[in-house]
């Protein structure tokens, strides 16, 4: 089982408020907040790519962990919004970090990619010793597609997060994980190579609102923990209403589900690490205290990770 050394994030400069977006979408800014909990989001510049976002988050994470890029023995990059079908962004991110021979793997899974990268990194840390997991998304390229769809455009933002795992040291240790996939509803959330996008919001929310609490409960049960014993849940920042519903289903107070969706919107696979980085700065791991990470994304793929502070 791997140690977690650091989290970090990179958010582009441009802030887009609900008022600005509502004017463009001809809708009520209060409706955006009510439907999602989002008050603003960040958009990358036209010249800023998924790779640019990923490199910035990776460098911030290495700095925070006091590591050099050359320490990284395996790079994992999650992104579902990189426009190039192949190669995925991982090899380019590795190149930009100055890594010449280091293996770099892509995880093209929307929303759950960061968590899946973390689980892969945890499983491979014994072999590769230092694993850098990065999740980067330029979701504005989807949100701002014409014709604008308010149900899509209000949700997404751009950003990147990173997590450094190692076999030797860290602030916390990953204790266990659960990961599931089910393709029965793959068409409910899909962005196809021909550019068509489909999102059945009711189906996604119905599945997510059941699977999130269930997978967290499964993880806790096999580690002999009750939800009440976990002070912090770090979840993919999909929608504030979904986080609140998950907290209700588990019988824990909603504030235990760390949230920064108000400021950044739904940044898909990047959101878990962006939330973790903010939480690490404001609170962070404490010795022996369990923390649960969870994500659900297109596919559907969903899972949870249990870590304990050292």
């Amino acid at each position: 089982m791997a140690f977690i050394e650091a989290f970090a994030s990179y958010l582009p400069e441009k802030v887009v408020t609900n008022a600005e977006l509502a004017a463009r979408l001809d809708c009520d800014p209060a409706w955006i907040t009510r439907a999602s909990g989002i008050e603003q989001r960040r958009y990358a510049a036209d010249t800023e790519s998924v790779v640019d976002l990923a490199v910035a988050a990776a460098q911030a994470c290495l700095t925070r962990a006091a590591r050099a890029p050359s320490d990284v023995q395996l790079l994992v990059v999650a992104s579902a919004s990189d426009p190039t079908r192949f190669p995925g962004p991982a090899s380019l991110v590795a190149h930009r970090l100055g890594l010449e021979q280091t293996p770099a793997l892509d995880v093209p899974v929307a929303s759950a990619g960061g968590l899946i990268g973390m689980i892969l990194g945890n499983a491979l840390a014994d072999t590769y010793s230092v694993v850098l997991v990065v999740a980067a998304e330029k979701m504005s390229s989807l949100a701002l597609r014409e014709p604008l769809d308010p149900n899509v455009a209000i949700l997404f933002g751009d950003g990147a997060g990173a997590c450094l795992l190692s076999s030797a040291r860290g602030r916390a240790r990953i204790a266990d994980h659960v990961l599931h996939s089910d393709g029965a509803f793959a068409g409910s959330l899909a962005w196809r190579a021909d550019g068509t996008f489909s999102m059945d919001g009711r189906s996604v929310l119905l599945q997510a609102s059941r699977k999130f609490p269930r997978v967290i409960a499964e993880l806790l049960e096999r580690n002999a923990l009750n939800a009440s014993e976990v002070p912090v849940f770090l979840m993919h920042q999909a929608n504030q209403n979904l986080m609140d519903a998950t907290a209700r289903a588990l019988g824990v107070p909603a504030p235990r589900f760390f949230s920064n969706i108000r400021a950044y919107g739904n940044t898909s696979s990047a959101s878990l690490f962006i939330a973790a980085a903010d939480w690490q700065q404001s609170a962070g791991f404490q010795s022996g205290v369990p923390v649960v990470f969870a994500a659900f994304g297109a596919g559907f793929h969903w899972g949870a990770v249990l870590a304990r502070g050292l």
């Binding site: 009711r202 929310l205 119905l206 609102s209 059941r210 979904l242 519903a245």
Partner: peptide, 16 residues
Amino acid sequence: LFDSGLIDSFVLPQLV
């Protein structure tokens, strides 16, 4: 129930 606005996406899981 959806088109009429009686049940929204966030209430549907509770209804189920």
